[in-house]
Design a binder for these strands. Sequence first.
DNA 1: ACCGATTTGTTCGTATGTATA
DNA 2: ATATACATACGAACAAATCGG
Lengths: 240, 240
Amino acid sequence: MEFGRNTGSPLWRQIRDDIAGQIRSGQVAPGERLPTEFSFAEQYSVNRHTVRQAIADLVEMNLVRVEQGRGTFAREPMLDYPLSDSTRFSDIALAKNCCPAGILLDHGDEQADRRIADALTVPLGAPVIRVELAGEVDGHRVFVSTAYFPQDRCQGIVSHFQQSGSVTKALAAVGIVEYKRKTTRVQARLPTPTDARVLKQERYRPVLVTESINVDAEGSPVEFGITRFASDWIAITVET
Amino acid sequence: MEFGRNTGSPLWRQIRDDIAGQIRSGQVAPGERLPTEFSFAEQYSVNRHTVRQAIADLVEMNLVRVEQGRGTFAREPMLDYPLSDSTRFSDIALAKNCCPAGILLDHGDEQADRRIADALTVPLGAPVIRVELAGEVDGHRVFVSTAYFPQDRCQGIVSHFQQSGSVTKALAAVGIVEYKRKTTRVQARLPTPTDARVLKQERYRPVLVTESINVDAEGSPVEFGITRFASDWIAITVET
DNA sequence: ACCGATTTGTTCGTATGTATA
DNA sequence: ATATACATACGAACAAATCGG
């Protein structure tokens, strides 16, 4: 099947397969920027719309990612977030040797609603500390997380987090040196407008949501976390 | 805070909270149809658009589900799919005592592509059996699944499935009496048009995707399955 | 803080061939 | 054979985001 008009298959599909071949063969490295739509159009002697149709299909196939005003990029492989009883955010990085960063977005004192009280096994209305966190890998926002800590055991945890940048270290600083993931629920949703903005992703790209309860060595809950992962970047893996 | 105009909070939010209260208190049972938008509008003496804004927020809060042309329904609680090494589809049902059904949609012989070959540890191009399956609970489509079996070990598995309606029994019939889930990857995506149709869900509602490898007692792969769950109905739970 | 250049996103319109009822 | 719908392809214009100076 040679390239051109009237060859039986539509132009946009031929263009799609040509670009796909360049990516799969490694001629274009993951993360690298592809030529502009306009220059593709010149190269193949077609309209920009035709190139756009090809690219739209490559997005669907998850081979490229498009950013308005910036360009079209070959997709980096997705990051695996291994869901074991002791995974920390930094573990994502270890597997890919890239730099993770946790960013404190907001925090405050609240009273436990039904859901939080159930998860932390504290009375309804008990004081809890809320911490909003974002995570980046290689400059990409990959998750935003809301964590609740029982106030009686975690006094001052926010300032410890600000110093160390790590939930694990902050918990250790308030005397909880060992904690484990007990249960996790995984759901898929569309992001709230706020989450979409914080994750810098479009409103209609789904998020992977985990609700997890972390317990200390005695088995009593010390953290209830709701994490929204950018589904374009993160897959959760479970070994059983 | 009493109901009415000029009370400080917008009408649609008051209406939203009123309806939310009726659902949470159980005055409206899960799955039950709510009054029409028009009758809500009459009841609260507001425009239908005001009611629609309240309902849109209730959808966002996951308290109701809207079906075009049918009405607005109080959300049934989501089904938990526990992800252990030996969960079968029928386990969803046991927890909720409702009736599950597996439906064979399609099947065929294929040659393993890169991904399937890697998962099943067979050579590239080796013959595999593809089985497309849908799952229903209480008359709702909750998942659609594509499973690949190595042909040499699973000859005739399709007809066994047709007789028993169970993957477990079909595998047993070809001599694989024990198998375990080894690894699972969980992702969130938007459904393909086909999946959206089969799941009877809108194009922009996400699906939870699991890719799992099942191995026999000796640890060699006997099934590679890609399951797309309707994210409105199913959450995955992991105990660690 | 602003401007202009670059690049993708969206929406009009037009035309043609093909499959379908 | 006719009408209708759909996919393909092109053209022009403008909106929106990004980036460098």
